[in-house]
Design a protein around this nucleic acid. Structure first.
Length: 592
RNA sequence: GCCUCCAUAGCUCAGCUGGAUAGAGCAACGGUUUUCUAAACCGUGGGUCACAGGUUCGAAUCCUGUUGGGGGUACCA
């Protein structure tokens, strides 16, 4: 039982004893005490006046007296307006440190047996990854790690969009204008090479449209009638018919892209246990359509197309199968959802996909529910906001994107420059230096993207570099390195014993209170699917540590007892910082 | 048109299921190092929480409406 639960329990008892009213613990409201008042935990007494029929102040006095005599950990209290501030004993906080310190698995919950799949990344194989994909990848990876730390068995999956008209566009443009260019011949990373032809396609396609429009065709006609798009469509049909040369070309260009993606994924530090490919799954879902028709969930229109009527749910009628019997996006997703469940039988399935697809997933989940799929209630769309530039949306076709590889390289280069300016790499080998720059550059980038609540859209200004000071990844990494430096100077092994120093300084207590909140934060982050909660927590912790570091001498402390205590406190802080950052996919250095 | 998300300091963002005087960072200004890493710490200035109503002992938070912005509303994915 946590201290909070204990207090709630006694609060309920107190109301029973003093006001003869039966209450439930969730009728009480506990919060952190604001730092201008004495105490650590605050009871809001306004709601309780309903039972006490007294003023909030007097109610607070009553409850404070009761709690103080009945809860050992509470040594004092004060009532300010309607707020009962409880002072928890320093021994209690000290005891927390003992427990945290001796538990290497602090903050890692035991296995629950719950299995959850996190699908993320899901790239198109016709262009390289950009900043928006980075956000997706980091979010997916981090949420998966957070869920795992909460005791879930996690499967990270990636549904690769490797077919469709957009892939044919790159292929066609390469065929027409590529002159046999390969990643080897040009030295271009495979995904960038393919992306280049995607852009070329669009340019040439636009040119053709302009010619047609000049001949008097409407915008729409020109779009349909341009030779290039028609060729691309023919290519798609040939692909679906299994045409050998097209398939070979497709395989070749895909392999270039995968080689490129692999590099980018490695730099991002993300991984997957299971890959699904749309080229394998695009025909799935048709049996679900039959199932839905049989169950009367879907209906057929005279032209043969299949629909679902969701007007009762406040949505529209939605097409689920074309009149010609071919599938649409949602058909495939229905089939893939079933496939994933057949493969893994997971309890929950999380789709990390941008908020432009909110409607799609609402419909998808609703359909599966209506079909009576028992697992439909475990489906969750982790919707996140787009990454915008000051000029607006990023568009691959128009080349207005922040390329993932470029940005990563830039971040690492900046990390290198900053570190060298500060002269912090004396005695580092070349390899250590490279590692450190990588760690810091990626730390800055990852923290920058993850500290913002997922559903909010994010503004990225390429002209303003991502910070390395203040509320940033490097600040937290620095704090960790700083602690490691102290520990290493003390030859600290991490197993030393320590004793209660008699009393706690304010910064020491603040740190302890914060560290002991970590499991709760981890739980919230998991429930909310929000790495941002971890990021903000870790930042607070780093700030508190630095304050402590400035105010309290550790190695210089003349009291041996105090010194061992502060070292243990430092070690615990470093451990939690590291755990939290690792959940964000960020490594922390021991020196920087 | 309809649906949906968002709006907090000059900028980027926190603010847990409604609770005390709305907090950080950046930017600006000032200070701290013969002492454990100054990517740090301390301080100053900066707010009509988009606007208007409502519910409540209490609203940045909940409800309604308005304005502004994003996204969706395709036999694209």
């Amino acid at each position: 039982m946590t201290l909070e639960q204990k207090i709630l329990h006694h609060l309920s008892e107190a109301v029973q004893a003093i006001y003869q009213t039966k209450t439930d613990t969730d009728q009480f409201n506990l919060q952190e005490t604001r730092k201008e008042f004495e105490g650590q935990i605050t009871v809001v007494t306004f709601p309780i006046t309903e039972f006490s029929k007294k003023s909030p102040e007097l109610t607070g006095e009553d409850l404070g007296n009761y709690l103080k005599t009945n809860v050992d950990e509470i040594v004092a209290f004060n009532v300010i307006k309607g707020f009962l501030n409880l002072v928890i004993s320093d021994e209690y906080w000290f005891q927390q440190l003992k427990e945290i310190y001796s538990a290497p698995s602090y903050g890692i919950l035991p296995k629950t047996g719950n299995k959850v799949m996190v699908e993320y990344s899901s790239p198109n194989t016709n262009k390289p990854l950009h900043l928006g994909h980075i956000r997706n990848n980091l979010l997916g990876y981090s949420v998966a790690e957070i869920l795992a730390a909460n005791g879930n068995e996690v499967i990270k999956s990636n549904l690769v969009n490797d077919r469709g008209i957009h892939i044919c566009k790159s292929m066609l443009a390469w065929q027409k204008y590529g002159n046999g260019e390969t990643p080897e011949s040009s030295g271009l990373k495979g995904d960038h090479l393919v992306g280049k032809y995607y852009v070329i396609f669009d340019k040439e396609y636009k040119k053709q449209q302009d010619v047609l429009k000049a001949q008097g065709q409407s915008e729409e006609e020109a779009k349909k009638n341009a030779a290039l798009i028609q060729e691309a469509q023919q290519m798609l049909q040939a692909w679906e018919a299994g045409d050998e040369p097209v398939i070979t070309l497709w395989k070749t260009m895909n392999s270039w892209v995968y080689a490129g993606f692999e590099q980018t994924y490695a730099k991002l530090g993300v991984d997957f246990q299971k890959f699904y490919y749309e080229s394998d799954t695009y025909l799935l879902g048709k049996d679900i359509i039959d199932e839905g028709l049989a169950k009367g969930v879907f209906f057929k229109k005279p032209d043969g197309s299949v629909w679902i009527d969701l007007t009762k749910e406040g949505l529209d009628e939605k097409l689920v199968l074309r009149a010609d019997g071919t599938s649409v996006y949602i058909t495939q997703d229905l089939g893939t959802a079933q496939l994933k469940y057949n493969d893994f039988g997971m309890d929950e399935s999380i789709y990390v996909v941008g908020n432009e697809q909110d409607y799609h997933f609402k419909v998808l989940f609703l359909i599966l529910e209506k079909l009576g799929k028992s697992w439909a209630k475990g489906l969750y769309h982790l919707s996140y906001g787009m990454v915008d530039l000051p000029t607006g949306k990023m568009k691959s076709r128009e080349g207005t994107v922040v390329d993932a590889d470029d940005l990563i390289d830039e971040m690492v280069a900046t990390a290198k420059q900053r570190t060298e300016e500060l002269g912090k790499v004396d005695g580092f080998s070349e390899e250590e230096k490279a590692n450190l720059y990588q760690m810091i550059g990626m730390g800055a980038l990852k923290y920058f993207l993850l500290k913002v609540e997922p559903k909010k859209r994010l503004l990225f200004d390429p002209n303003e570099s991502i910070d390395f000071q203040g509320n940033t990844g490097p600040f937290i990494q620095y704090t960790h390195a700083r602690i490691c430096s102290v520990l290493s100077k003390a030859d600290y092994a991490g197993t030393e014993t320590f004793a209660y120093p008699g009393q706690l300084a304010e910064t020491e207590r603040d740190l302890l209170v914060n560290i002991s909140q970590y499991p709760q934060v981890l739980n919230n982050a998991s429930q909310e699917h929000s790495p941002a909660l971890i990021a903000n927590y870790v930042y607070d912790l780093a700030k508190l540590y630095n304050k402590f570091y400035h105010e309290a001498p550790i190695l210089k402390s003349d009291d041996e007892n105090l010194k061992t205590f502060r070292l243990a406190l430092s070690a615990a802080s470093a451990a939690v910082l590291k755990k939290g950052m690792n959940l964000l996919g960020i490594q922390v250095p021991e020196r920087m």
